[in-house]
Design a protein around this nucleic acid. Structure first.
Lengths: 193, 193
DNA sequence: AGCATATAGTTTACTAGTGAAATATACGTG
DNA sequence: CACGTATATTTCACTAGTAAACTATATGCT
């Protein structure tokens, strides 16, 4: 992802700032600076995709960094919380394979996390009676309480972070992202099939 | 990031689908399913932030997975390419510290990457004459050629992925993301100060 | 000048994730 | 019913990143 390639760009300040070129977003974030640098070096390339992909990556990185804080207070990493959250929100037991799909992780990673979370008494394991290859995982009381305790904090924090955007902006952004995401997901699905 | 917590949600299909609730985006992506699950379990919580943050994270994950492919063909990881790209787009030498800031990595990670990239003959190191603590890195001829060879491929690929969105959608999305990103970045800056 | 403190970068010990191989079990078919 | 193949999960060897300690150098104050 070329577009990811971006940074705060401390010193350098390329000039050439001229509006109306394609998807020029006027506002100056770090991605805009990076795009300007690339255009200065490779004027022949269409840097349009960077404006979207670079920003998505950058936003994701910033949001994660900020939002991992509440989790760490609870002694959880995000992947761990995602796993617990999957169990909580589905409301029923899940197999390791299902958990891997839900959290977009490899099976090996899920195995490791489950080991730790089980040792910490947050999840319980039960073997399937019919098919002895599969296991069923569920939250313990403590695990459920932990998730339910963290979730409101997290949402409150997220709300405050996003409050920098007007309600209209938020709705618009959510809609566009949903549009992109659903297309990406069906592309993915098509590729694998 | 609670909102990240999401998955393809294979089996389960919570029902309650009623439009017009806050930032309801109509289109059904995996994040929408996850949000519906959370609402079913915790109806009292405002799940609005998930609609944005969850989608940003999900999009970032999907885009990265897809786009890392061209890089891997060239034998580079994304962080490595980001480092090389920073050198290429700024057009001048950078110190390890500057590279760390440009690529949002830790200093230690940059040190490791530089070691590898130097061994591969893609970057060169030069000591500062005045301040002997600092080093200056620049691309070798081979490094520059590699970046210049990969970049167009990457942009072309990104263009094709995003072509699922109309030009208007793309512009709108880039603008909203830029708005969010610049606010996030100034929040960040404010926090550290 | 001499010492305290700040800064740049590297090293170290450790952690978490990955892909591939291994293990265990189930299923389908002749 | 036995065998080959598919599936679920774990294990293993390895890689990359991190935070904290460490080294080397510079800067400022008295």
């Amino acid at each position: 992802m070329t577009a990811t390639n971006g940074g705060p760009t401390p010193g350098s300040d390329a000039t050439g700032d001229r509006p109306g070129a394609g998807t020029d977003p006027a506002r100056s974030d770090t991605v805009a600076v990076v795009v300007r640098q690339w255009r200065a070096v490779h004027p022949e390339l269409d840097t349009g995709p960077m404006e979207i992909i670079g920003r998505i990556n950058r936003c994701a990185a910033l949001l994660q960094q900020a939002e991992d804080a509440p989790l760490r207070r609870a002694g959880l990493s995000r992947p761990e919380f995602d796993l617990l959250g999957a169990l909580r929100r589905t409301g029923h037991e899940l197999t390791p394979g299902e958990l891997a799909r839900e959290t977009f992780s490899s099976g090996a990673a899920v195995t490791k996390r489950l080991k730790q979370l089980t040792e910490r008494g947050l999840v319980e394991r039960r073997g399937d009676t019919r098919d002895r290859r599969v296991a069923h995982l569920r939250l313990t009381e403590a695990g459920r309480d932990l998730v339910d305790g963290i979730l409101p904090e997290q949402l409150a924090y997220e709300t405050s972070v996003l409050s920098a955007l007007s309600s209209e902006s938020q709705g618009e952004l959510a809609g566009r992202l949903s549009e992109l995401l659903s297309r990406l997901e069906s592309q993915m699905h098509a590729l694998r099939a």
